[in-house]
Structure formats: C-alpha cells, structure tokens
Design a protein around this nucleic acid. Structure first.
Lengths: 371, 371
DNA sequence: GCTGAGAATGAAACCGGTTTCATTTGGTGT
DNA sequence: ACACCAAATGAAACCGGTTTCATTCTCAGC
C-alpha cells in the first residue's frame, strides 16, 4: 500500500534468469525462440516470468535486433478527412501485423516532414509518406536510410501507392456531358500536385472528347474557404458544373453557391473527390471514391512485405477510384447562372482569396487577380 | 551510385567521436548537455555530426536514460473530426516539447484500448487517453504503471482534461428561447457518456429555467446516419429545434430535415457541438466550440509536466466551450413542422436500432419507422 | 565401449547511447 | 613559483535485451 503510486521499475531479464536458475540467454530464447529449448525449460521460465510480471522490454529488444516493430505515418494534415481515413486504414493494418504506428503531422510543410523523418528514423522500421511535400532528392535520401512507401507521388524505384482517380473523373465528365452541360470547370490545388494534376488532365481530356469547354481554376490550399471563394470565378467563367480536387473544396463550392441563392443540382452541378465526407453533405455529393482507407492499408502492406526481402519496397500499387453518383449532379440549367455572360474561356483563372487572417494559412496571393 | 539501395547503417556516436577526434562522451554531451563543453568543442562536434548526417539514436537513448521521449495517444475513432482535431493539437504540442507520438485507434472498443495500452507501455513515457471506453478499474491499473491523462472522463486521482460544454449548451437554450422556441430536443449518444450526459443535463436545466419543454432522444453511436434517422422522432415530438451531442449528428439532422423539404433555420433550428465541421456546412451550424485542439494540447502538457514531479499527474484541467452563433438557428416557425400534432412530451424516445449487422458499422435504421 | 553429431545451455560480446568517476588542464591566490 | 580548485574531457560501466560461439551432455552407430 504505497501511498505514492510511483511507477515501479519493471523486472528485467536478469532477475527472471536468476529467479528461474537459468542464464539470461535462456530466458531470452524462451520468449523469442522457444523451439530451441526443452519444453520443460520454457515452461519453467515463462512461469517465473509470469509470476514476476516480466514483459520483454521492447526498447532494449529494438536496440539489439535493429528491428523496432514500429512504423511511422507522415502526413500533411491530420485534420483533413482524406488523411484521417487513410490513417485509420494504415494504423489498423499495421496493428493487425503486429506493428505500432507513429503519427507525424507535417502541417503541410516540407521542412517539418524532413525533421520528422530524421527524428523517427531510429525508432521505426519504415515510413509511409502520404502526399509528401518534400522534394524528390530529400525523399530519396530518406528512402536510402529506411524503407519508405509514398502515397500519391510517383517516384521510380520507391515503393508507392497511387490512387488513380483519372477514370473516375473521366466518368464524371461523361456524366455531366450526358446531362447536357456544355461548359465545366476543374477546381484544383497546386500543392497536392500529383493528384491534382492527374485529375486536371483527366478532366481536360474527357472534356475535349465530349466537346465541352473546360476551364481550370486554381484554388490554392485545398480548403473549404478556397472552394467557397472560387464561386465568383466559376460564375464569371459561365460554367454550369464544377469538378473539385476533393470533397472539402466541393463542399466549399456548394456553400458558396448556396450563399448566392443558387441551388444544387438545379442551377449548378458539383462533383467532389475522395468520397469521404461526400455522403454527409446536403445534397450528398457525387464524388470519385478514392478508397482512402484501402490506400493506407495497402501502403502498410507494401512496406511490411518489403521487410521480408533484402531490397527495399519498390513496387507500385495502383488503386482505381470509381465515380459514385449522388445528388449534387443534375441536368444542365437552361442557361448558365453567370451574372456576366460567358466570355472566351480563359485557360486558367486564379481564384482570389480573402487575405486570410490566420497564421497557418499558407496564403498564396495573386496580386493580379481581381478582388 | 549503388544500384541496390540497401539501407546503409546510420552513423553512430563512435564514428562521430573518432572523426571529430574526441570521445563518445563528448559527442553525447554536445547533444544533450552542451553547456558542459567549450563552445568551440560543441561546434566542432556538431559540425562533424552534421557532415556525417548523424542523428542521436532515440532507441539507444531511451534504453540508457529510461525515458522514451514518446507518448501515445489512444482514441476511439481517428476518422471522427473531433478526435482528428484533438490529435492535431496533441501531436503538435508533443512535438513542440520534443516528444514523438504513437497513435492508437481503439475502434470504439474497450478491449483494443486495453491491448494498445499494454503493448505500447514500454515504449512511451505516458498516455493520453481520449474519451476512453475502458472501465474505470482497468484505466486505474494502467495508470499505476505509467502516467496517464484522460480526456473527458472524470476520474479522481488521474490527470484529466474536461471540456465543459455545459455553459455553451445553456447559452444555446437561452438563444433558442429568445428566438421564440417553446419545445426543443436534445439528441444524445449514450456511448460518449460523460460528455453527452453533461450536455443533456445542461439542456434540461436551462430548458426548465426558460419554461421550455425538453425532449431527450438517444441516437446511439454518434454518426451522420444516426442524426438523419432521428428526424422522424423529432417531428413526432413536435419540437422546433434540436441540440445535438456533436456536429456530425447535427449535420445528419440537417440532412434529414432537408430530405423532408424542411429548411434550416426557417422551419427548424439546429445546434451542434465541437465546432469543428460546423463552419463548413450550409447553412453553417450554430455550435458549441469544444476547443478540441486546445484540449489535446493541454492533455499533453499536463502529462509532460507531470514527468517533472515524482507523483503522476493528478490535476484536472477544465476547458469551457463557448457558443458560436451561425446560420442554423433562427426564429421559431409559426407552428411546429410536425406532421402529427405534438403529444405529451415523452421523457425519452429511443431511436430504435437494428441489432447491428456489420461488426463496426453502426447502421442504425429504424425498421419500425416508415421509410 | 568409444566416437561423433546434434541438442541444450551458458558466457560474453554487442546494439548505441548516457553517466559516473577519474584525469587532465587552466587559472587564481598568496 | 606552488598549491588548489574548477572546468573540460576521457575511460569505462551500464541500460536490457539478442546472438555468436563455446561448452556440456546425450544418444546413435560401429
């Protein structure tokens, strides 16, 4: 009955050895390679161990074996639902395979990513790097030290999981064309380059195939606000539908439309991507399912399977996202809801953004754009 | 130009020592206690270290110091925005103070929580347990082994951070009363007991104070679907406003209302809690700000500060959530949108739930209710 | 009955740091 | 100049496991 519940020191392997009348080596083997010992010995050792409440110290084990039994998941923003879902899938899969997971939030910065990779390197057997902001040489530097699997970044020679949303966007454009839309927009984000570029290309190609005019709008950091602020540009462009880089931006667009009294899908159609919050909006978003959780789980598998082989993981694993049609897409309105008549569609319109007061908004201002 | 990028072993302290012409002890001190060394020596050592790409091995450090430099964050559902936000705050704060963070998702189960606590114990200096599903004795068992701080659970003698949303809900009821509402509902979840109970009490008390009739509805697992499925019960109860246990449920309620052609706030007012996705809905939700990120950061601080003292953290830290008024609350409609006239307000209406088919799918449709 | 292979176990080195304790060095007081 | 003390640095033990290598012991085979 100690009044101060100070945390008592855990029993060590030497104590168990002495208590059981064997050597440390034997105790160690009883836990890690019992087949080398007499069943009687194993039983005796494990018995005393249990009696003493001994549990092998994972840290010491990691130091001597070089295997940590941990992996780290580094991502740009935990709060972004895409990454939350990814994380859930990754963590669950790692757990299933006996690994614990470190979480590193890089806050969308390359530098923090670099630091986290360095700090955690010794404690993990490998990394899953989701949508890395880091430049290629640095990623390769880290990959040379520890196995790395990247998600949504196509780096030859490094294990990677790519979510191919291209077909989904192609299908979405076809859907819109079928509904009578003639002018559509893609609202992208420059930062999450690989994914956004891929989607932009798919939209442009499919648009051309269907004879639609396609406007490309750059929203900056993919956020709700960015989406909302894009709506002015959408109106100006005279389009009747928008495909967004992700659901968060799509939801922002819907909010912006609602603010102007426009209804979805009556006056305007919206398509999102990721399908993670799409079912929870109203109207529910038509969205390209990115299978986030599966992507996370696959990345972990790729990483862990690589441990069995001498060479680091290098394969690439492609997941194809399918279009999920919900209520945010409908027949084209009789005429575009634009207040100003459609002009020659500019190739790219940067949506201007409110001079964001908060500190951590990465604010990428465009002085030349209006408002 | 090695073709097989096998992961080269990281440089060790001995290598740096030899390279810099000093002893290991000096290199060690250059990193951990530079004030013991000549500035010139420190510089020399750090210089060589940087040149070699040396980073102190955290595992070895942990073994010899007994301090792991890690904490673990255990929570019921990473994908829930409340916990995402919490996680973000906690992880950032831990990083700031030099700790890395393990992530454990218990998938809302007590058992997994228990297992995770056990497995991680050796590798961390302490735990942050958010909204634990574990029963009190087990929590205390773990707390006796390692420092633990719980969030939203009031356990005497264990460090805890409590988000007091009571005042916010009181203010919300006052707001509704002022807007002319006479009958309101609280939609709660039994699982997140502490928080939900606290909120229910605040609503009941404030309702009584303002002479409102208050109905309590139990939605089961707090999810979007649960919220949507509650709407039937809300209509039946003849209320004109609902306060939900969190924003996710509130958003579900809004979706359910929209499905029935009811507008918010014209026909019905909705209040959420947590204020994490509230600003992104349309109309934006009036919500009680739970300061999730701050709660996470405070929990980490409480835990880490406890390390300095011999006794484990035991203090409790209360955060008060304020009401943020947005667009989902408005004047009471001329008459309740109920299809059936309001009856004597039942004290509790359980939204019935199917005996959950999937393992973790909360799916709670009501077979008895009409479509 | 003796030899040799193989199984069971132990002694000690090792993983990569930290920390105690001893030693060297430099500066001060007289 | 000499003695003395503090500051700077090094040698070696230690953290708690794993693993190599040597040793002991058993039993099959001739």
């Amino acid at each position: 009955m100690t009044n101060a519940p100070s945390h008592r020191p855990a029993p060590t392997i030497r104590l168990v050895a002495r208590e059981a009348g064997v050597s440390q080596a034997t105790v160690s083997r009883a836990f890690s390679q019992p087949e080398l010992l007499t069943p009687a010995t194993v039983e005796k050792v494990l018995g005393t161990a249990r009696r003493l409440g001994y549990v092998p110290n994972q840290v010491a084990r990691a130091l001597s074996t070089g295997r940590a039994g941990n992996i780290a998941l580094i991502l740009p923003d935990v709060a972004n639902p895409f990454f939350s879902a990814l994380m859930r899938g990754a963590q669950a899969q790692a757990y299933k395979r006996g690994y614990a997971t470190f979480l590193g939030d890089s806050d969308e910065t390359a530098h923090l990513e670099d630091v986290l990779l360095g700090k955690l390197a010794a404690q993990v057997d490998g990394f899953v790097l989701a949508s890395p902001r880091l430049d290629e040489p640095l990623i390769r530097k880290h990959a040379a030290r520890k196995p790395v699997v990247v998600i949504n970044r196509d780096l030859e020679g490094i294990g990677r999981v790519l979510v191919d949303t291209g077909p989904g966007f192609t299908a979405a454009v076809a859907l819109l064309a079928g509904l009578g839309h003639r002018a559509i927009a893609y609202v992208g984000a420059p930062r999450s380059s690989w994914s956004s570029q891929q989607r932009a290309r798919a939209v442009a190609a499919a648009g051309a195939a269907h004879g639609l005019s396609v406007v490309q709008i750059d929203a900056g950091r993919p956020s709700h606000e960015a989406g909302r602020d894009c709506v002015a540009a959408l109106m100006e462009a005279g389009v009747t539908a928008a495909l967004a880089v992700d659901d968060v931006v799509a939801q922002g667009i819907m909010a912006g439309l609602a603010e102007r009294g426009l209804s979805v899908p009556g006056d305007f159609s919206v398509v999102g991507c990721d399908d993670i919050i799409a079912a929870t909006t109203y109207p529910p978003l038509t969205s390209v399912n990115a299978r986030c959780a599966i992507a996370g789980a696959n990345a972990v598998d790729l990483l862990l399977n690589g441990f069995a082989t001498p060479a680091p993981p290098t394969a690439s694993h492609v997941i194809t996202g399918e279009l999920v049609i919900r209520g945010s897409t409908g027949p084209a309105p009789a005429q575009a809801p634009a207040r100003t008549p459609a002009r020659a569609p500019a190739q790219t319109i940067r949506a201007s953004r409110r001079p964001s007061a908060k500190a951590r908004a990465p604010a990428e201002p465009d002085p030349s754009s209006r408002k």
